[in-house]
Simulated scan of single mutants.
Amino acid sequence: MSNVEQSIDVDVPLSIAYNQWTQFESFPEFMEGVESVTQLTETRNRWVTEIGGQTREFVTEITEQHPDERIAWTTVEGDLKQSGVVTFHYLEENKTRVMIQLDWDPEGAAEKIGSALGVDSKRVKGDAERFKTFIEGRGLETGGWRGDVS
């Protein structure tokens, strides 16, 4: 199992950062390798990714979600095993720290070597930086879901 942790400070209020992160279908706009995310229910999403020339499809289930605090998930079907949590931390009125923790199970030699070389960490860092550019450039979220999942 590989573990990736990354944080980034974004210059928007906490609720805007959180609300945007609940808009899973917008993830391809700032996440490298994410081809599409389709929201199936309030807590399930189907992902299509392209990693190292290989297409992967999987479904995630939100296992915990508390507005303006955290979103946690795990895969429930498909060919990629992962779980993670994103937490949101108030720094100032217009500054929020977004912390990403991701655990995933690389399969095959290429993914294992890539993980050992830190390719997954670099990708998550790039995704966090693109999220910062995306949300700061907009100034407002594209939507938001404020539901609570325990």
Rank of each mutant, 00 (worst) to 15 (best):
S15F: 13
R46E: 11
Q20G: 00
M31R: 08
D11H: 07
P28G: 04
V34W: 14
E25Y: 00
W21Y: 15
P28F: 12
V37Y: 04
E29F: 05
T41P: 02
P13K: 01
V10I: 09
E29N: 02
R44I: 08
V34L: 11
V37D: 08
N45P: 10
T43F: 15
R44V: 11
Q39A: 15
E29K: 12
S15Y: 13
T38I: 11
T38K: 10
V37S: 13
I16C: 01
S15L: 04
E29V: 10
V34T: 11
L40Q: 14
V10Y: 01
E25K: 08
D9I: 14
S7T: 08
L40H: 13
R44F: 12
T43E: 09
E35H: 10
R44Q: 15
D11I: 05
L14H: 07
T41K: 12
F30C: 03
S26Y: 01
R46P: 02
V37C: 13
S36Q: 05
S15T: 11
Y18C: 00
I8H: 06
N19P: 03
A17S: 12
F24R: 03
E29R: 15
E29D: 10
T41R: 01
E42F: 12
S26L: 06
G33D: 08
V37Q: 09
T38F: 06
T43S: 14
Q39V: 06
E32V: 09
I8S: 06
E42H: 13
R46A: 10
Q39R: 15
